[in-house]
Design a binder for these strands. Structure first.
Length: 170
DNA sequence: TCTCCGATTCACT
DNA sequence: GTGAATCGGAGAA
């Protein structure tokens, strides 16, 4: 059921589309368990990807992306929204999948707000965490691809990569 | 220290 | 379609 760390020990371009349709499970501090089906993800791939935070190299902030596959990377954007990512590939290869929407929540900021996800989950491993994990219940999505959102600053070459994955069945 | 700006969302015009 | 909210990371000074 719970996806193991090995699932994430592959290139992000394989992992990101395969996460679509999986169940994101969140257990809040008060013990409430919520399961949401992931309907949209994006891939951020290494230091050469100008849209990836790791394009700036290894810094305190991007350190998590260089860690073991399955590590949870969470950061604050625009001073108000937490973004949820899962690190892929072996150690020292900085790649991550952004969970863009799941269940009834469209938009990464709304998703993390609904699930009460903040930086205190940062750097934990999603394969070995009692507060957040991912399950496979056999659902098969119908995937469409599109350019990533909000990364125009990275230049056309990277902004136009079809690295966003959407479940057309929703 | 100081300045710039972002993997977003929402309220307006 | 435009702009504000809001703050920490990264780089320059």
């Amino acid at each position: 059921m719970k996806l193991p760390a090995e699932f994430f020990d592959r290139d992000v371009l394989f992992v990101a589309p395969e996460l679509v349709g999986k169940l994101l499970v969140r257990k809040t501090d008060d013990g409430e368990v919520v399961k949401l089906r992931i309907s949209e993800t994006e891939a951020y791939r290494g230091e050469e990807d100008k849209a990836c935070h790791a394009s700036k190299g290894r810094t305190p902030r991007t350190e998590v992306m260089y860690k073991y596959p399955g590590s949870i990377y969470i950061y604050l954007i625009y001073g108000m929204y937490w973004m949820l990512n899962i690190v892929t590939e072996k150690e020292n290869v900085p790649q991550a999948v952004l969970i863009r929407s799941a269940g009834d929540y469209g938009g990464p900021g709304k998703l993390t707000k609904a699930l009460k996800i903040t930086k205190d989950l940062n750097s934990l491993n999603i394969s070995d965490c009692s507060l957040l994990w991912i399950e496979d219940d056999g659902y098969v999505p119908d995937i469409a691809v599109a350019p990533r959102i909000g990364v125009d600053y990275a230049g056309e070459e990277w902004a136009l990569k079809p690295w966003r994955y959407i479940d057309k069945r929703n």
